[in-house]
Design a protein around this nucleic acid. Sequence first.
RNA 1: GGUGGGUUAUCCAAGUGGCUAAAGGAUGUUGACUGUAAAUCAAUCGGGCUCCGCCCUUCGAUGGUUCGAAUCCAUCACCCACCA
Length: 311
Amino acid sequence: MNAGPRPKLHVLTGCTGVGKTEWALRWAEENDAEIVSCDSLLVYRGMDIGTAKPTAAELARVPHHLIDVADVSERYDVTRYTAAALSAVRDILARRRRVLVAGGSGFYLKAYFGAVADEIESVPGLREKIEARLEREGVEALVVELSRLNPAGLGALDTRNPRRVVRALERCLATGRPLVELASEFKMRPGAFHGYDVELTELAREPVVLAKRMEQRIGVMLAAGLVEEVARLDRAGLRANPSAACAIGYRETLDHLDGKLPASELAAAILANTRALARKQRTWFRTQLPAHRVIDAEKFANAAELFGPVS
RNA sequence: GGUGGGUUAUCCAAGUGGCUAAAGGAUGUUGACUGUAAAUCAAUCGGGCUCCGCCCUUCGAUGGUUCGAAUCCAUCACCCACCA
């Protein structure tokens, strides 16, 4: 294969509201880089205010990828993301520019460090059939079925998590092979970016400081017309897409539009869920991503310090 | 001023004499994670310990009845409703 040094990828992450956007822009400007977003919701057109998507002015400062590439009613997932990101990365490098991956979607981020989904073709209609059965008979029935198909055991499957059980059964039925076998095979899979040298930095802030920033940001979002944005997206089919409709800021606003949440409680509800998200992100970064440098955003002032010296 | 209703742990809210540190929910905390991932799921959630058990402090306040009270009685405080 090619003998030269592996191409380098810089990845900047951090939980929601730490201030990734501005630092990413600065670093990209100083290092002749383009930004590949790593965010499961910025991919959707029209989800702007509630996702704190970079503004038009910010997007104009540096070329961005993987933002506004799907309709809210359209389904997006890690597999799609990974393929699109890989091709964006190749294009950027072919242009002899650097790549800065920026974003806080943990699962998507993991794609840069290893395999994140297998390539088992989904059989048309199978998933729906399993989900219908889940609805009728409950998870237990699916677990029984799975156990029947897997005399060697279910491995590390979380049998109480309906979503996982459905996927596991889907994989078994689609391939006719046992879970443990599929799992060990999966472990062997190289990630989509295995040929790259990936450097990861996490931007962090004290929880108290972060909470204050979140609160301010939510106020700004509401003033900027979050409710109107959500109402507009609702008409465009937002609810048909569970992942977009469940986005923080959006789900609470939908509840509000449905009369289930008074306007006076909207900001507080969004804040609580945002904090919960940040906590989950921290856990993910710590436990699911490789050891990496963590930088306190309050304590440095130079984008060059984000990563090791760029050669 | 009168009558009735209420005051339970971070919040909401069950519980009307022992099986109650006290149901349930939310929040919080910790964690899991192969294609919905800002999702889904789990554990924990008064305090302390030598932590499959033990000790301490809780159910507005004080005092009482009882072998035993968040649960019964009295007084006080605050809140709500209706009547003056």
